[in-house]
Design a protein around this nucleic acid. Structure first.
Lengths: 195, 195
DNA sequence: CGCGACGTTGATTTGCCTCAACGATTGTGG
DNA sequence: CCACAATCGTTGAGGCAAATCAACGTCGCG
């Protein structure tokens, strides 16, 4: 059960056996059924969560009741409402399982202990955050500079696995466009191929 | 000259005197005149840079020759092309001074030394990145869920200082809208106030 | 089976962009 | 020190990409 996360960590830092054991002791396995919520907006996010199996979406609901997908998470990814976790404020995001899923949770207080007792983990989390930061920066750039079609194309190129597993209207929400627009883009592509 | 950055760091971690001295010894002051480039796209970004005075913009140039402002940086902020710094790949961003500015640079290799010798700095950088990550996530959300007017309003509310100092067409570029649109939004507001 | 979730397609609307022309200000070289 | 160019913002007219609104087909599931 812990193989995936230990390999994941080992890709970035090297842990002594007792450190690895300590890390593992802080992890709590949980299961989620499709449509079950890992986090509700309004609650305080108290865990960082590593996905070992399945698929999640994090989304917000705006004043008009519209949902906006902030991110997806699948195997080998972390997911949480980082803002809430860090500040202790109420979460602005919901996190919902899109498939039956399994995760490993680590509580905020245990994460702090981990940073204290295994300093290498500061480095590990720094690298995770650097990558996430760069990814979000590129996403911002895409959304201010590209057309709907360019964005959708970039998405399926970057996340072919997600394109297979996530309903199209969720991808549309993630990109900030409508499901109809994605449908029309796909139609254009298939029409062009036929010719 | 170093007061600002030492205070900035002290807000998040506590350093022993010899650690502070070591940190300071790694910092190299540089000055930039308005319009001077701190980094050119194509070069490899080799420094993390702390701004002690002035104002910068980071921007990319797309295939059509259009500029897109990725971020602004002013006093008390860090600026770099993090992607290039981390990977060693050519920078995708230009960074240009919008005012006469002064900065403190720290080289990548020195930053690594710092992480090794002063472990608290891993924590410090982690916190910086967490904040930057959250800020970018909110920016993504804004760009997929808000109108041009809502975004502009949120911008001047969040960064009133930047609204004063940055030319409007640069803000437009940052938001992914045209200068004309911002101009019209402002006209609407002033017309509404007159009535 | 019947209902909800999901995707498709068409008709219409609209927010924002594009293109263009024009002041106001700043800066600069002769 | 002035003439001229460059930069920046404003305003108007017209166009287009994508949203909205609406109807319909299909699939999977309780």
């Amino acid at each position: 059960m812990y193989d995936l996360i230990l390999q994941h960590v080992a890709r970035h830092i090297t842990l002594a056996p007792h450190e690895e054991a300590f890390f593992q002791s802080l992890l709590k396995p949980r299961s989620f059924r499709k449509r079950q919520y890992l986090l509700q907006a309004g609650d305080v996010c108290k865990h960082e969560t590593f996905i070992t199996k399945g698929l999640f979406r994090a989304f917000t609901v705006d004043a008009a009741g519209e949902e906006h997908v902030v991110m997806f998470g699948m195997e080998d990814w972390w997911i949480s409402d980082l803002y809430s976790l860090l500040t202790g404020n109420a979460a602005t995001q919901h996190i919902e399982a899109l498939e039956d899923s399994e995760v490993l949770c680590i509580e905020k207080s245990d994460l702090e202990k981990l940073y204290q007792q295994v300093p290498a983990f500061n480095r590990f989390m720094r690298v995770m955050l650097q990558n996430a930061f760069v990814a979000h920066q590129q996403r911002v750039l895409a959304s201010i500079s590209q057309t709907a079609e360019e964005q959708y194309l970039a998405f399926i190129k970057k996340y072919p696995a997600l394109d297979q597993r996530v309903p199209q209207h969720q991808i549309a929400s993630y990109l900030g466009i409508t499901p109809e627009t994605i449908s029309r883009i796909r139609k254009q592509w298939s029409d062009a191929r036929k010719k």
